[in-house]
């Protein structure tokens, strides 16, 4: 007997249950990006707010597992298993497929199918092109759980090429000074490097040790980043870095550099107030998270009947989506937690 839409909707909403440890899939008995130690976890990508150590068994892409090993050491989990993007696994009663999320190398959405209903957990994602990872794979679903860091309509990222041009222009005008670009060491830093290479910049780029280590994983995964030089301890040679780009995680390089032009690459740099207080001389609006327009487009694209939103101003996005698309949208925090006893 075919399911009625109402049944299907209910079906999709039972695929996932918010719990104190994070989103739980009872049909497959696993968590997605759990915040506490659990028996079985699917990890969407290597950032530390998603990939934590100490789980019993971990499923993730090869790159994500490599980032976890880099951060936490080899024994970051009891066991780990590589899943390829697009590959479908059967976990308990659920069919699970990891789909490219376009956020960083190895980042995926988790597509879960159970009794004819589908749910997708976006994980961190973006829609704009990124030379370091495959772009967001659009699949239809009934329930879409969207990460929405920039869920305010003022957050609209400019094209990344333009931001890189700003950096190159500054390098041209201030060839007598080092250019210290602050970017997170996994993901953002490599994207900045790849964008620079795309723009034709082929000079060696000086990188903080943490970035150098993560970049090796990129090279191993076939993402070429050109010539990188790891920063040593001594940065005080006043001329050595003039006219060079130095990439470092925020706080990674002290004031040792001589008169650097400082820059911070982040989506938050969209607002002048943030750019003035944190952006240094050269704020670059470069984000690996969907902006407002991408969020709205993506919800449209996946065609979900139900939308749960995490991060950002969930209320604003939920209200807008409800009104314009007629989707049942709410903040994930407003979805009732699992009843006692259902969680393992």
């Amino acid at each position: 007997m075919p399911e009625t839409p109402a049944q299907k909707k209910t079906g999709a909403q039972t695929i996932l249950i918010p719990t104190a440890s994070g989103l739980y899939c009872p049909a497959g008995d696993f968590y997605i990006d759990p915040t506490r130690k659990v028996a079985r976890a699917i990890i969407t990508h290597g950032h530390s707010d998603h990939a934590r150590k100490g789980h019993g068994a971990v499923l993730a892409t090869r790159a994500t597992l490599a980032f976890m090993a880099l951060r936490y050491g080899k024994n970051f989990a009891g066991t780990s298993q590589i899943v390829k993007e697009g590959e479908t696994l059967t976990l308990g009663d659920a069919k699970v497929t990891l789909l490219a999320a376009g956020h960083m190398l190895g980042s995926v959405q988790v597509h879960i199918e159970h009794q004819g209903a589908t749910a997708i957990i976006s994980g961190d994602f973006k829609r704009s092109a990124d030379p370091t990872c495959p772009s967001f794979d659009v699949r239809p679903c009934d329930l879409f759980v969207a990460e929405a860091t920039f869920a305010l309509p003022i957050y609209r990222h400019p094209p990344p090429e333009g931001e890189i041009e700003k950096l190159l222009l500054s390098l041209h005008l201030f060839a007598d000074r080092p250019h210290l670009v602050h970017a997170y060491s996994i993901g953002k830093a490599q994207r900045v490097i790849a964008l620079l290479r795309q723009a034709g910049y082929d000079e060696p780029i000086h990188v903080h040790k943490a970035i150098a280590e993560a970049s090796l994983i990129y090279e191993n995964e076939g993402v070429s980043l050109g010539s990188l030089e790891t920063l040593g301890a001594d940065l005080s040679d006043p001329q050595a870095f003039d006219g060079k780009i130095i990439l470092s995680p925020p706080g990674g390089v002290a004031e040792a550099l001589h008169a650097p032009v400082t820059s911070f690459a982040s989506g938050w740099m969209r607002l002048k107030s943030a750019a003035k207080s944190r952006g240094g001389d050269l704020p670059l609006i470069l984000s690996d998270h969907a902006d407002w327009d991408e969020l709205v487009t993506t919800v449209k694209d996946v065609g979900a009947e139900t939308l749960w939103i995490t991060h950002g101003r969930e209320d604003v996005l939920a209200a807008h989506i409800k009104e314009t698309l007629g989707v049942d949208a709410k903040a994930l925090s407003a979805v009732p937690f699992a009843p006692e006893g259902l969680q393992p």
Binding site: I154, S273, D315
Partner: peptide, 13 residues
């Protein structure tokens, strides 16, 4: 939509 403006005006510079 005006609501979007109301929601955003506190956040902008």
């Amino acid at each position: 939509n005006k609501d979007l403006f109301d929601a955003s005006k506190e956040a902008g510079s």
